[in-house]
Design a protein around this nucleic acid. Structure first.
Length: 587
DNA sequence: TCTTTTACTTAGTAGTTTTTTT
DNA sequence: AAAAAAACTACTAAGTAAAAGA
């Protein structure tokens, strides 16, 4: 959508919102959100559909009970989904196997169903090898062939990957339908292994403006529906068969629509900054409320604020992995220690959060919180809700009363951004080199990632690269020891000779030792950093929680080129912030 | 009021590409 | 030139929260 400010000024080309930020036009943000209109014109080509199934060549067989069985096309396709995954841990899990086998049988013909009765008599190894070979063949392609593939992908991107929104060409985030396959949930998912159906045009709803060129469905097909709803931002949608949820085709984060939304998000978090002290004293007071619900709300909010926990919506049991957030914590997820690690009133939290990532923390809390937790746990069993009187809806309703637009997740954004700003202030020294400043930035980023519990699997190559680094350190230590010995000799030499030559030799040795010690120091901090970061994912907070204006301002203030902090994609995503933030920006 | 649906943000993984080291 | 490491991208699952429906 064209910026209303620019429209009013008759500026049709480049949005000048950024440079005109000092001009006050109260109300235009509100005006936008009130009627909920997201665009006036929207045109696109519809999603690009996953290629249809390519049957296995004649030489590749599936065996049942040792005998080759020629499968129908539909059954064969599903068999290849499993065959491809054979070396993955997933296929060893019983739930995965059962879900797969039951869904696979539904795709079989009656005769196939009569033959194929047990998964353990199925032999997919030829199918597996076929795909392994295929991957290897693709990897072995010549430079020219690879280039050609790349160009084809680019062509596709150009044709389907962009839309026109209010006259601007905008990049689409996901323009391809998800291909069929076996569902891979995260953690202990009850539906892992189920067949994820192929999406057909008949499943897809198109959203575009009435007067635009309506996208053509693939030959011989029709759209489920074409609608024109300008109060939503999606271009196409379909219902997925595993969870029965809706999937959307949406714009890329670089688009203006997404950028403005992102900006808005940080503005809400900045408003929280203005009232957070008051909110904190409020929930402290509520720890002593006579109303149990109020107390639970106050303690939950304390967790959300202090520990950056997620809200914790309720979820349907048995439909997803058993994970929790703040409001859905159960008694089994916390332990109370009157005293631990030399602190009083220690709470240990241990639960699986989003994506089944473990949250483990042992933290001293204020006495009333501790007492309340004891109270909330009284006469409950492990599986009971800790905050039994509280839901995310009631919590958010309360927050809404405290500040317009305030919800539980705003606290995560606020605390993340504030932490970055504080850490940058504490760690950055103006006289440092650019490299050292970037190291400080990453440390600040890491503090946030740890706060938000953003984890990653230890990289596969970690052990080896750590070993190499240790080897380097050992070698450097040896060099230092040698340099020390030489320095000692040089000192003795100079002492007895006392001439210029021996002095300059001595000074040379001194400088060498100094240099080597510095190198050793750098290597060992590198090793510490590496060890401490191996399970920490920085990207999530950088992309979703840290107001980019903080980083932009920091770059400007300390002469760090912004490209060293944000790559090209990220700079496109944060274009609004790059435009807007001066070196004096404060979150 | 309670439940379900909808829309959108946040999340980690796997595969690919680029850069650095050897 | 090859190998290793780091950076980046695509993908899609899993959250949040508000609106709609019963």
């Amino acid at each position: 959508m064209q910026c209303l400010l620019c429209a009013a000024l008759g500026l049709s080309q480049r949005c000048l919102r950024g440079s005109l930020r000092l001009i006050v036009w109260p109300g235009w943000e509100e005006e936008k959100s009130q009627d909920g209109v997201k665009w006036k014109q929207l045109e696109h080509k519809g999603p690009y559909f996953a290629p249809s199934y390519e049957p296995l060549p004649d030489g590749v067989h599936f065996y049942y009970d040792g005998k080759p069985v020629k499968l129908s096309l539909a059954a064969e396709e599903v068999a290849t989904f499993y065959g491809k995954m054979l070396d993955h841990e997933y296929t060893t899990k019983e739930v995965f196997q059962n879900n797969f086998f039951s869904d696979w049988r539904k795709e079989m013909t009656a005769e196939e169903r009569k033959i194929i009765k047990h998964l353990d008599k199925c032999d997919f190894t030829e199918i597996h090898r076929y795909f392994v070979d295929k991957t290897a063949a693709r990897k072995a392609l010549s430079r020219e062939e690879k280039q050609k593939l790349k160009e084809e992908a680019e062509k596709l991107q150009q044709e389907f990957g962009y839309c026109t929104l209010d006259g601007h060409r905008e990049k689409i985030g996901n323009f391809k339908t998800e291909p069929p396959g076996l569902f891979r949930g995260r953690g202990d998912h009850p539906k892992m292994g189920m067949l994820k159906r192929r999406i057909l045009p008949e499943d897809v709803t198109i959203n575009c403006s009435r007067d635009s060129k309506i996208p053509k469905p693939p030959a011989g097909h029709q759209w489920k529906e074409v609608r024109s709803d300008n109060t939503v931002t999606w271009l196409a949608s379909w219902t997925e068969n595993i969870q029965n949820s809706i999937k959307y085709v949406m714009l890329n984060p670089s688009s203006k629509l997404k950028g403005e939304k992102d900006w808005q998000k940080y503005e809400v978090a900045r408003r929280l900054k203005g009232v957070v002290d008051e909110i904190r004293s409020q929930y402290r007071a509520d720890w002593k409320s006579r109303e149990m619900k109020k107390r639970q709300c106050a303690v939950a909010l304390y967790f959300i604020d202090k520990l950056a926990l997620r809200a914790g919506n309720e979820k349907e049991e048995g439909e997803t992995a058993d994970t929790v957030g703040c409001c859905s914590l159960r008694v089994e997820h916390i332990q109370l220690y009157p005293e631990a690690d030399g602190c009083q009133h220690v709470v240990e939290l241990d639960f699986l959060g989003k994506d089944s990532i473990r949250y483990y923390n042992r933290v001293p809390v204020e006495k009333p919180v501790y007492k309340n937790l004891q109270l909330f746990m009284e006469n409950k069993s492990r599986g009971d809700d800790l905050f039994d009187r509280l839901t995310t809806t009631s919590l958010n309703k309360h927050l809404q009363d405290l500040m317009d637009g305030l919800t539980a997740k705003v606290f995560r954004t606020y605390n993340a951004s504030v932490t970055l700003q504080e850490q940058l202030r504490a760690l950055t020294r103006a006289e440092d080199s650019v490299a050292a400043k970037i190291l400080s930035y990453n440390r600040a980023n890491r503090a946030v990632a740890i706060l938000c519990n953003h984890q990653r699997a230890t990289p596969k190559t970690f052990e080896k690269s750590m070993q190499n680094l240790q080897l380097k350190i050992e070698a450097k230590k040896k060099q230092v020891a040698e340099a020390k010995a030489e320095l000692k000799q040089a000192r003795a030499g100079h002492k007895c000779r006392g001439d210029d030559r021996s002095r300059s030799f001595l000074e040379k040795r001194e400088r060498l030792l100094e240099k080597l010690e510095e190198q050793l120091m750098r290597l060992s901090t590198q090793a510490t950093d590496k060890e401490e970061s191996k399970q920490v994912a920085l990207g999530t907070s950088k992309l979703n929680y840290l107001d980019p204006r903080i980083s932009v301002a920091w770059c400007k203030r300390f002469g760090v080129p912004v490209e060293r902090i944000y790559n090209k994609t990220q700079r496109e995503r944060f274009a609004w912030a790059l435009d807007m933030a001066g070196e004096d920006f404060e979150f």
